[in-house]
Amino acid sequence: MTIINEIPMLLSTSMNQPQKAEQIIERMFSMIELFNIERLNFNAVLILCLAAGETYITLGQPEKAMEYLRKYTDICCNLQMPMRIRGDDFFDHIDATLNKLEIGSEAPRDESLIRESMFCALRENPAFSQLAELPEFQYLLKRLERYRGEEK
C-alpha cells in the first residue's frame, strides 16, 4: 500500500517524461489487479484513477484520461455498503488487524458525505474542465449524481 499511496507524487514528478508517466500508470494498475487492491482498498484505487486521469489530461491524451475516469465512476457506483477496507484469501490477516483498531474497517465518514465527495472529485477537479462538454464525461457525472442520491 505504501507504493500505491506514493504513485500520485511519482506521477507529478514525471510529467516531463510522458513515456515514464504512462509506464508508471500501467505498472501500478497491473499491481492493483495482481493483488486485488480494488476490492481490498477501493479508496486507494479511486485516488489513482483520478491521478491517472489528471496525468493523461496534462499529457494531452483526453481519451486515455476518460478511460480512467470511467474506471473511477464504475468503482464508485459499484461499491458494497457499508464501505470498508477488507482482506481476502491472500491477505487473510487484514480483517483481524482492522477489527482491533478503535475505528475498525468501516469508513470514518458518513456514506452520504463520501458519495458527495466522489461526485465532487470528478465535477470540481479543474484538470477535467476541458472534458466538461463531452457527452461521455457528462454521462459519468450523471451516474455519480444518481449514485450520490441513493439511499443506504
Rank of each mutant, 00 (worst) to 15 (best):
L113A: 08
A65L: 04
S30T: 14
F90W: 10
R123E: 14
N99F: 10
H93I: 07
D110H: 13
A21Q: 02
F29K: 02
S105C: 12
I3M: 12
T55S: 11
R84L: 08
M81F: 13
L59Q: 03
R148K: 12
N36H: 12
A127C: 06
P126M: 04
G60N: 05
F128D: 00
M31I: 12
M66F: 10
Y147R: 03
P108F: 11
A51F: 08
A44D: 14
E124S: 06
K142R: 10
N78D: 09
M15A: 11
S105V: 03
G87L: 03
E133Q: 12
M1H: 10
A65Q: 02
V45L: 01
C77Q: 03
N43S: 12
F29R: 02
K100E: 15
P108M: 09
M66K: 15
P8F: 08
P108V: 14
E111V: 13
R109S: 11
E33M: 07
M66H: 07
R39F: 10
E63C: 04
L46Q: 04
R84G: 03
L122C: 04
E67D: 10
P135W: 02
I32L: 08
A132V: 03
Q61S: 13
D92G: 00
D74V: 10
E133V: 04
G60H: 06
L34N: 13
C76Y: 03
L113M: 11
L46Y: 04
R148M: 08
A44V: 11
N16R: 13
I32D: 01
Y147K: 02
S30A: 14
C76A: 15
I3Y: 15
K20R: 14
M15W: 13
I25V: 15
E133T: 07
L11W: 06
D95M: 04
N99S: 12
M9G: 08
A121E: 06
S112C: 04
Q130V: 07
N16C: 08
L113G: 08
R39E: 14
R70P: 00
L48F: 05
S105N: 15
L48A: 11
R109K: 09
I75F: 06
E6S: 14
R146S: 10
E145D: 11
M1N: 07
N125F: 09
I4P: 01
L10G: 05
L59A: 06
E33A: 10
E145Y: 10
M118G: 00
R115W: 07
P135R: 01
N36M: 05
S117A: 09
M28G: 00
K152V: 06
D95I: 05
V45T: 13
G104H: 06
G149L: 13
K100T: 15
A96E: 14
A21E: 00
Q17H: 15
Q130S: 12
L79A: 09
P108Y: 07
L144M: 09
K152W: 08
R70S: 12
E106D: 04
E116M: 10
I75E: 00
F128G: 00
N43M: 09
S30F: 11
E111T: 13
N43W: 09
N78R: 11
N99Q: 13
E22V: 08
L113T: 09
R84V: 06
M83D: 01
T97W: 13
R146M: 07
F29T: 03
K71P: 00
